[in-house]
Amino acid sequence: MPMIEMKNVSKWYGPVQVLNGCSTAVNKGEVVVVCGPSGSGKSTLIKTVNGLEPFQQGDVVVNGISVGDPKTNLTRLRAQIGMVFQHFELFPHMSVTDNISLGQIRVLGRSRDEATARSLKLLERVGLSQHAAKYPGQLSGGQQQRVAIARALAMDPLAMLFDEPTSALDPEMINEVLDVMTELAREGMTMMVVTHEMGFASRVAHRVIFMDHGQIVEDDKKEDFFGTPRSERARQFLSKILHH
């Protein structure tokens, strides 16, 4: 059974169709990169996995639980899926440690001491121990995004979703975030990553999904995607972002 399975997912904003019959599956321990031109529906697709974006047709099944079923306890399901956002979305009124502890205390029911201990361990892991008491606004973009990854990991997720985790970062900070993600992938985390970082995709991903106009145009093994993409659109996209 795949960890994440999408079956014919379609979504409309009013009359505009933003997702058009998207089907794919992500197995346990697999790293799948989703790429495509802006406005192609990548972010919307990834947000259907934890129900942040509702959809009108099809279904998404995570670890055997249907996201589209109105009877599903979405709150409980979301607690098992980590998500990292383009603009970090750390809570600016809480210290870095409290950001990582909040979900552990409120959702997992850990004690404050237990949660803090875990948060500090995760901060060490992303190399930010000395910033534990600071507020998000006092950190650089790259540091904030690493805190956001730690916050998601604190929930011991079954899978992690990354929605353009490096596209709001200054170039010199991109690698510090990608390094953390690479390490996570090496440890066998199931990951779905929306990104334009083709270097990361070719090093870390198992599969690459290419989207255009709300459709999944390609869903290939990494070697095939970077070797000989089948569609003209994917070829054009690759030549645009690889040659500059």
Partner: peptide
Amino acid sequence: QMWAGYALGL
């Protein structure tokens, strides 16, 4: 911010 809260399972 709302999304981030929901994503944590709040």
